[in-house]
Write a protein that binds this DNA or RNA. Structure first.
Lengths: 380, 380
DNA sequence: GTGAAAGCGCTAACAT
DNA sequence: ATGTTAGCGCTTTCAC
């Protein structure tokens, strides 16, 4: 039976030796009258040990309250079984949700997750990355907008296991593995829904350029229906709720030649919430006066008044694929390096060790979730 | 000038040696023609080194693309400059918010934060703790409801730096330092507000027993106003939004001898949102038919329709105090152990090394935030 | 100022 | 089946 790397050791028994400092395998070895390596063999379940000594070692391990020192183990193994998850913020509920999903899956694979919040600050992101590179972690899952893609590419080309998650698929060099949502399709779905309801005066709130594909999918579908998206119907946000509020105000502001929109598509739920707040603050009704569509399907969206119609992102799926892609890299790296993970280059004299081939790109499909924030326009 | 532990090293220059494996101080030493220890001295800015060699070492460090190995450093220093933050869930937005605050402050102090989500599962919490105890982290900030207090006490008595955050102050052994909110007072504030508005038929949704103090504060104030809180006006939740919804349904369910309440106090915002959802689903109005008060002041609460009246918890303050209390312990431990942090006992033959004295308890005051989910009852 | 050497706790190859 | 030995990369005395 394969023993887990994280086998638990019991708490020391009441009277157990707790003098001196931490208990090491050497202490156990002495107590049990065997060699360090024998203890190591027992504890890792690897080498061959007689049942008798095995039991004796186990006994003393427990008796002395032994606890393995991961630092030492990692140092000698060149692996930490830890993965860093780098995200741009946790103020937008989308990120805690995906965090939870990724952490859960990683735990199942016996990996520890280390969260890093860059606050959307590239300099900070680089700094954190730099710190982590000091052999803290075996690989990285990097969420969109959290770091400078150039920095990431730099690390990746040195052989660091990395997977991009939730980026626009055309945003990054194609040699870095990534898993993301088909955002173009997401934009299409939103547009199709609004068009089907009969809307013609449609506006959008978007965080450019990071959400460009969502906009393009949306725009394309409108265009196919013979509708253009004039500049006055596009408001920029920064993905925050507040920016959604401000953008909506701008869209509804008077003194435009255009009639006010009957529907708004916000390229994420968090901004959509802000937009909805503004609309309601104006004394308008959702969806009667203005329909609103979001994107992400964060938990709260379903519990608002009215519940938000949105384009759902399959977060669990995203998490699974990302993890899979990353662990594959980690395993490969550890294999080809003789169980040593690459930190700097591996190879022959400065030759880049990664082929600039096309890496796997996994696009997961979004889906429309119709709730009560959208309806046919009344004035139609 | 004090050098940061996290001094950055530049990315290696284009043609820099990237062969073989990672660059160590030994490589630098060889290149610069000095001893390892001299390099170490330069890099740590500690020992005395002539400016000339200093520059030379620095030059080669950069040239070779040196990156310190934290694992090795930590192993030999017996410190990781990492703090674990253990929380019960991140589904409730309160936790991401406090996470952000704590991480921010810890970073200022040059500490890395390691988040651990126990999903409210004590067994899992213990398992994670056990893992972390293997010398991963220097100390722990443990949020309420995330672990079994008995387990925590066990570790603490072994000398592990721990601070409890956001627990009920009477919930834990008094020898563990803690910082929390005056929840009794919070309950009082909620009651005072509702009484002042003229409510008499008041109900509460509470996650017992973890939120007992909030309930007691509330109950006490009502009682002082001559109001009892009958069992049918108390519904139990588990802190989740869904449970708030269910609890509210129970409170409004027909067939009771009691008239329906005109106000509901939910002991956290997340449940309050659920309660509000149910009320609105029933076709009732908030606050006209039913007033709702929450507790936590999570970000979304302000953006709901109607915006939620709530008792605010000063999260930044909480984070500051918790960090302060923890770092003090870490410093103390590292000092008295000769720069070695205690893992198991330190002391003389099984004698518990912590006095069972009363540890610092910091209570931060909550405050009432009035928004539009509360108003005077109409039928009054 | 600089260097040699021991050690942190564990793993892993090689002897026995 | 068990023991010996040599690292992992860094810090830290303590001589020179």
């Amino acid at each position: 039976m394969k023993e887990s790397r994280f086998q638990q050791w019991q708490h020391e028994r009441p009277g157990a030796a707790r003098k001196g400092h931490m208990v090491t395998i050497y202490d156990i070895a002495r107590a049990a009258g065997v060699a360090k390596s024998t203890v190591a063999n027992v504890l890792s379940g690897k080498g061959k040990v007689s049942e008798a000594t095995r039991q004796r070692v186990l006994y003393y391990a427990r008796e002395l309250g032994y606890r393995p020192n991961l630092l030492a183990r990692n140092l000698s193994q060149h692996r930490t079984f830890t993965v860093a998850l780098i995200l741009p913020t946790i103020a937008n509920p989308f990120y805690p949700e995906i965090m939870e999903a990724i952490e859960h899956i990683l735990r199942q694979r016996d990996y520890q997750t280390l969260f890093c919040n860059t606050h959307g600050d590239f300099a900070l992101g680089r700094q954190q990355m730099e710190r982590l590179m000091s052999r803290w972690v075996d690989g990285y899952i990097i969420m969109g907008s959290s770091m400078d893609i150039a920095d990431i590419a730099h690390y990746f080309r040195q052989g660091v296991p990395i997977v991009l998650c939730d980026w626009q698929e055309n945003e990054s060099p194609s040699d870095i593995p990534q898993v993301t949502v088909d955002f173009f399709r997401a934009g299409q779905l939103a547009a199709e829904h609004l068009l089907a309801l009969g809307h013609r005066r449609i506006a959008v709130i978007v965080d450019e350029p990071q959400q460009h594909l969502r906009l393009e999918g949306f725009r394309t579908t409108l265009r196919q229906a013979g509708l253009e998206l004039p500049p006055d119907r596009i408001a920029l946000g920064d993905s925050s709720l507040e920016s959604g509020y401000a953008a909506a105000r701008q869209l509804l502001s008077v003194g435009q030649e255009l009639a006010p929109p009957t529907a708004i598509f916000a390229t994420n739920d968090w901004m959509a919430l802000g937009a909805m707040e503004l609309v309601l603050d104006r004394g308008l009704r959702v969806p009667e006066d203005i329909s609103i569509v979001g994107l992400d399907d964060i938990v709260v969206s379903a519990h608002l008044r009215p519940p938000l119609t949105t384009i759902a992102i399959p977060k669990t799926r995203l998490a699974q694929e990302a993890t899979e892609l990353l662990l594959a890299q980690i395993e490969a790296a550890s294999r080809e390096q003789g169980h040593e993970l690459p930190l700097a280059g591996e190879g022959n004299d400065g030759a880049p060790q990664r082929q600039a081939e096309t890496a796997p790109l996994r696009l997961v499909p979004p889906s429309l979730v119709v709730r009560q924030s959208t309806a046919a326009p009344v004035s139609s």
